[in-house]
């Protein structure tokens, strides 16, 4: 599954400009240090963090997209930095738990 396919499947709102790519797995964390240690290339990263610091961390470990859950407002400078690195920043109105359930149903957790 690619990012663009996922966007339509679970009602995500794309905020940054990005190159479409394949998704491989999901990583859920609200700590950049946790992501630096454990996320894998192509993972979707689900977080409630909107701070700009998430983008260099996402870029460092090559996640396919950052999904900000819970309908949080995302600062423009976060979106602009993501666009520079072609990282997809997607917004979801769903809480993390509900979104994880939907992603699992789509087969992304298997």
């Amino acid at each position: 599954m690619t990012i663009n396919e996922l966007v339509g499947s679970v009602g995500l709102k794309p905020l940054s400009t990005f190159e479409d790519r394949d998704i491989s797995g999901v990583f859920v964390s609200d700590m950049v240090s946790d992501v630096m240690a454990g996320a894998k290339s192509g993972n979707l990263w689900l977080t409630i963090q909107t701070h700009k610091s998430v983008i260099p961390a996402a870029n460092l470990v090559d996640v396919s997209a950052v999904i900000i859950t819970g309908g949080k407002e995302i600062p423009q400078e976060t979106v602009e930095l993501a666009s520079k690195y072609s990282i997809a920043v997607l917004s979801s109105e769903l809480p993390t738990f509900e979104l994880v359930g939907k992603l699992y149903e789509l087969g992304l957790g298997k």
């Binding site: 609200d30 700590m31 950049v32 240090s33 630096m36 963090q49 909107t50 701070h51 700009k52 610091s53 260099p56 961390a57 460092l60 949080k72 407002e73 600062p75 400078e77 976060t78």
Partner: peptide
């Protein structure tokens, strides 16, 4: 420069 650290992460405002 900005450290890739978990600091100030709870702020909703840049």
């Amino acid at each position: 420069g900005e450290f890739i650290h978990d600091v100030g992460m709870l702020s909703q405002e840049p």
